[in-house]
Amino acid sequence: MPDTPQTPPAAAEIAALRAEIDAIDDAMHDLLMQRSAVVGRLAGSRAKGSGSPLRPGREAAVLRRLLARHNGPLGRDRVVRIWREIFMASTAIQGGFSVACYAPSAQSEEAGLAREHFGPTTPMRIHPTAARALAAVSEGEASVAVLPLPAEGDAAETAWWARLEAPRLQIVARLPFLSGTDGAGALVVAPVPPDASGEDRTLMLFEAETRASRASVSQALADAGFVVPSVLLARAGEATLALAEIEGFLSVEDARLAALPWMRRTILGAYAAPVAGD
């Protein structure tokens, strides 16, 4: 009898590895379906109520936990992208979600960050001004607005952050969650309060004295016990508007606020501190 053809060892090994991958894919799919079922029960839970499904703080906490245990050849940025898609799929199950983005064009930095964070299938509309993007959220046309990071030199009369109607609208997230080296970034504004992630930064707006300097504002905040990574100034007539980035998740009841020399102080929101990328 002729010999039975034998499968080459390399081909057999590849077939076994592919079978293992197929089994893992099935297991992952099973878990995704189970997760979606739990999200569906959460969406219908009376305990949850009818509020927004947006939970950027919890999402950040989940990503930090996963990144802390992650190892192997799969890049950290890939882990974040996979889970961002899972988060947005879960958000879609809980109700409609859309994005209003203030950007010069659909190819702009802010639009790219919004698509990467909220997913390519999430409805998004580009608006020509920050005011229009914020109005879309206020009027219920969009769930969140994505706006440029505040920058040194912003005019108080036109800077969106100087005119944000907090606490009705608040900053709830910073993009991207994985910090890069190019300085790109945007902020997310929503009609809901931010939720703490465990490692956060708060943005506060102060009206300081007419010729206040960055150094004097920073010193007053430090004297009150705040850790302040950055301060931006904008002149507004006889006053100086100061936008301070403060370590921690602050509330209006924070006792340290009473030590500040300025009467007008507004919490604009908070966001999860970014984590390092690959």
Rank of each mutant, 00 (worst) to 15 (best):
G198H: 12
T158I: 08
A37L: 09
D3V: 13
T7P: 00
T202A: 05
A236C: 01
P9C: 05
L42G: 03
A259V: 04
G51P: 07
G49S: 12
R46D: 15
G153P: 03
A234E: 07
E85T: 15
A166C: 11
P193F: 02
L67I: 15
W161T: 15
S179V: 04
T210F: 08
P274F: 07
W262N: 02
F249S: 13
W160S: 05
G198R: 09
A236Y: 02
A15V: 00
G153E: 06
R84N: 10
T202V: 04
E238P: 07
L67S: 10
A100D: 14
G248T: 03
A156G: 02
S138W: 07
G72R: 04
P150L: 12
T202H: 09
E141G: 14
V189N: 10
R132L: 14
E109D: 14
A155Q: 13
E247W: 05
A208G: 02
A37K: 12
R58S: 11
G57S: 07
S90C: 05
R78Y: 11
A236L: 02
G40A: 06
L66I: 12
R265D: 10
R201E: 14
S108L: 10
L164M: 04
L232V: 00
S98G: 09
G51L: 08
S138L: 08
L134N: 14
D278Y: 06
V99H: 04
R81S: 14
G225Y: 06
A15R: 14
E110H: 05
A89H: 12
V231F: 01
S50C: 09
I24F: 10
V252L: 11
V80L: 12
R41C: 04
A159S: 07
W262A: 08
R235P: 00
M33N: 02
S108Q: 09
R265A: 02
A215P: 11
V39K: 05
A196G: 12
L178A: 07
E165C: 03
P120N: 11
P5R: 02
A111H: 13
T202I: 01
P229I: 09
I267S: 02
R65Q: 05
E238F: 04
D223S: 12
S52C: 08
R214D: 13
L250C: 04
G44Q: 01
A255C: 03
R69Q: 11
S45E: 10
R78L: 14
A92R: 10
P120Q: 05
R81P: 07
R18D: 11
A103V: 01
R256E: 00
R174I: 05
